[in-house]
């Protein structure tokens, strides 16, 4: 906040004291937000309490402030809600487990290869998200190397298949959101002054203690940012479940997708979207409060 105030006073000083200058500069962003966020959200809210017009065609609804839509939508899809948050949590934890060592190595140990490795992290974005997700079918299929290897190690049985499974959905989500986890982690690890790590060693902390007491706490802003950037889109994701899953791995995104495009039940889709949004908001708020990183950022 102090920064914004400082920036604002500098801007006004620059423009010769015109108090309106900050608002002029904010206007394009505000207009964009209003048109493409506030209006659609209001429209969605409106749709969520509509009911079908008696004797009307498919897809014809009228506003009746039928709030029971929310209750019905939630009760009919409890399972999918639960699954969405479960899968998103699993994918987030897995992505964190993979991304932290990766970001740590790139930020602190890679020397002159740092930029090259960072390019590799974002390189997958140069091919289509869909294509990369479909590729996981191949990787986890009978012809891939994963299934024979796991069978050979007796981790999965001879009959078990990984395609069209919860494992595949979570694996796809973990993979797809990995860069969103890695980059903020990298940014916060890279910002750590290496001398604080030396100071920790100087003050009788060995490598593991230094990691627990200095590196990890100082990288918490990155952990929080990375987990949010993974969890939020993962909770609403439907592509991974659609491509890599089966009817028993449906997530709430898939339900919204089908109620909107297939059943043409706009109110249910809108009510589910709203419920998901509010659930995520509550979870994220609790998470940020608990993690206590607001001071660190």
């Amino acid at each position: 906040m102090a920064l914004i105030h400082a920036a604002r006073s500098r801007v006004s000083a620059f423009s010769g004291g015109k108090a309106s200058m900050p608002y002029v500069l904010l206007a394009p962003g505000l207009i964009f937000l209003f048109t493409f966020f506030i209006l659609p959200i209001a429209n969605l809210a409106q749709t969520s309490t509509q009911t079908p017009i008696a004797g009307g065609d498919t897809g014809e609804y009228e506003q009746t402030f039928h709030f029971a839509n929310y209750v019905n939508a939630f009760l009919d899809n409890k399972e999918q809600f639960g699954r969405s948050f479960l899968y998103a949590t699993l994918a987030t934890v897995l992505a964190l487990a993979i991304a932290y060592p990766l970001a740590y190595a790139i930020a602190l140990k890679s020397g002159k290869f740092k930029n090259f490795l960072l390019v590799l992290v974002v390189a997958p974005f140069f091919t289509s998200f869909l294509l990369r997700t479909i590729a996981w079918k191949q990787i986890l299929g009978e012809g891939g190397f994963v299934v024979p290897t796991l069978r050979g190690l007796h981790i999965i049985g001879e009959q078990t298949s990984l395609t069209a499974s919860a494992v595949a959905v979570v694996a796809g989500m973990t993979y797809n959101f990995l860069p969103f986890m890695t980059l903020p982690l990298y940014a916060s690890l890279e910002r750590i002054d290496p001398r604080t790590l030396e100071a920790s060693g100087d003050l009788y902390a060995n490598g593991i203690t230094t990691f627990r007491k200095v590196t990890l706490p100082l990288s918490m802003p990155g952990v929080v940012a990375g987990t949010l950037l993974t969890f939020i889109p993962a909770a609403g994701d439907y592509v991974n479940a659609a491509i890599l899953g089966n009817p028993n791995t449906k997530m709430i995104g898939n339900v919204i997708d089908s109620s909107f495009f297939k059943i043409v039940d706009y109110p249910t889709a809108a009510a589910l979207s709203f419920t998901l949004m509010i659930a995520i908001l509550i979870l994220v708020t609790i998470y940020i409060r608990k993690s206590g990183t607001d001071e660190l950022v």
Binding site: D193, R195, T196, G201, V214, L218
Partner: peptide, 17 residues
């Protein structure tokens, strides 16, 4: 960390957290 020696670093290197 095994030496009975402590350092005052050039830019202090205090733990910001």
């Amino acid at each position: 960390y095994q030496r009975p020696i402590n350092t005052v670093f050039q830019n202090y290197a205090l733990f910001p957290h």
